[in-house]
Design a protein around this nucleic acid. Sequence first.
DNA 1: AGAATATTGGAATAGAAATTCTATTATGTC
DNA 2: GACATAATAGAATTTCTATTCCAATATTCT
Lengths: 192, 192
Amino acid sequence: MGRKAYFNSEEFIDSAIKIIAEEGLGALTIAGLATRVTAPVGSVYHRFPSRDALVAELWLNIIESFQGEWLKILQTDGIKAMSFCMEWVRNHPNEARVMLLYRIDDLTSGEWPEDLKKRAQKLSGELQEGIAAFTKKQFGRVTKENIDRTFYAIHDAPMGILRRYMQDKQIPPRYVADFILETYNAVMKKAK
Amino acid sequence: MGRKAYFNSEEFIDSAIKIIAEEGLGALTIAGLATRVTAPVGSVYHRFPSRDALVAELWLNIIESFQGEWLKILQTDGIKAMSFCMEWVRNHPNEARVMLLYRIDDLTSGEWPEDLKKRAQKLSGELQEGIAAFTKKQFGRVTKENIDRTFYAIHDAPMGILRRYMQDKQIPPRYVADFILETYNAVMKKAK
DNA sequence: AGAATATTGGAATAGAAATTCTATTATGTC
DNA sequence: GACATAATAGAATTTCTATTCCAATATTCT
């Protein structure tokens, strides 16, 4: 019961992502967001308790969507996981920009609702586990150095180059996959 | 003539770098900075026309200091350039944190004094040139893909993994140099 | 129809930080 | 010692946004 909603959370989130992707984090103001959606600011606050909550939600949505699939693929095949990574960025330019150019610490002032914190911890835990599991499969022994090695080949190096294209507002060319793959082969082949 | 200065620009810059490195960009306020240096806010504005100018200056100082030396070494030896990169980060933890975790676009609102803009353009130009020159030496032919390849091996991949340690407020272990070197050898050996 | 309520609308408020402004205080010069 | 001026001091002001608040409006339920 009650009045029919003109605006929903998703709409606000999507527009917020676009604003950040196009004009940077500083450009994301509640008033600006409302204007973009042609909604009153009250409607934004009707959906989200605070700006921080909105941004945290936005961030978690992106990471959950990317990381969930990525880690699943990683369980079966490291090389496929890297291609996925490339293609995901090519297919989700706005989300990729937000994910690759901003760290959550700088997006918000850190005053999140409790449930969002839980989701963030879960994500972080799953990433650690996923990498650890893959390290075990690949090297047998799970040492700090081996984990770092895996993290580098699978995550840091790919994200490193993709970030540059995001910064230049470009879609990464397909040949970037070669660089990533060559790195993977060189770094992951020999156990330590 | 005139009164003796208690505070100088460098002092403000250094403290600002520490604040950003330790507590994040959001923690850098003029009042907070002044307090940290036990100076009045007026003295900050006596040295810098605006917060943006201060932050731009700080950023340019860091990049000029790192990139200048790095590019010089790169002219003679790619592998040495990578070791330098590692060591620089280990030796300048605060500066490295600022350099690796923040992009200048997000540090300031973009309203810089003209001379600072010039310095930024110069830096960017030198980086492009340095990479292009190295690409030429390495591959002969300077194609877009070859440049991207060099950029990746020399810059994106190393910075990618170093960023992760900066994020965790850790000093990167020396074995990271191995990963970077293995990447370099794998990616830079074959011309395209 | 009338009651209950979810939602819109948007003006008013609050708060935090940058910036300005006006003394005041040293320091070197004539 | 008086003058010019570079710098300190820090209170007052401005600005920019998040957030609050309350009235107006639809929509469903009984």
